[in-house]
């Protein structure tokens, strides 16, 4: 069995912000990956002005994926929307000690975050 860091185990066993925000005018959402690929993420965020007020995720994937999505939503809530555009996989990979062979899955999470940024930064 793969070795998981304590933080991965914590987020896997007690994921933060798991679920999907109900559709609303101030809620944006984005997806990346697929079940067939073995990894998929769906992110939803409630915006208020230029800030992310709430964020939820759905994740199909290995424990690293679930933990990474959980950690990411926890860290993005309260950030400006621009933080989504600047987000990349490295901080989460470092914080959770994600092994090199799982980095490709983190890029799928990055795709979902970037997609969310594009939607959030679109002019109304």
């Amino acid at each position: 069995m793969a070795r998981y860091s304590p933080l991965v185990i914590d987020h896997f066993d007690r994921p933060r912000n798991s679920g999907r925000l109900p559709a609303a005018p101030d809620v944006i959402e984005a997806s990346a990956g697929s079940v067939a690929q073995g990894t998929s993420f769906h992110l939803s965020a409630r915006l208020s002005g230029e800030s992310i007020m709430a964020m939820q995720f759905e994740a199909y994937g290995c424990p690293h994926c679930i933990a990474a999505a959980s950690w990411t939503t926890e860290h993005l809530v309260g950030s400006p929307i621009e933080a989504l555009a600047r987000w990349d996989w490295r901080p989460v990979a470092q914080a959770l000690e994600i092994p090199a062979e799982k980095r490709g899955r983190m890029l799928i999470l990055q795709d979902a975050v970037k997609c969310l940024a594009e939607i959030g930064l679109q002019p109304p």
Partner: peptide, 13 residues
């Protein structure tokens, strides 16, 4: 179906 294998095995540790 609908459950990823590695997570399933770890969840059932």
């Amino acid at each position: 179906h609908g459950v990823e294998g590695e997570s399933l095995q770890f969840a059932l540790r």
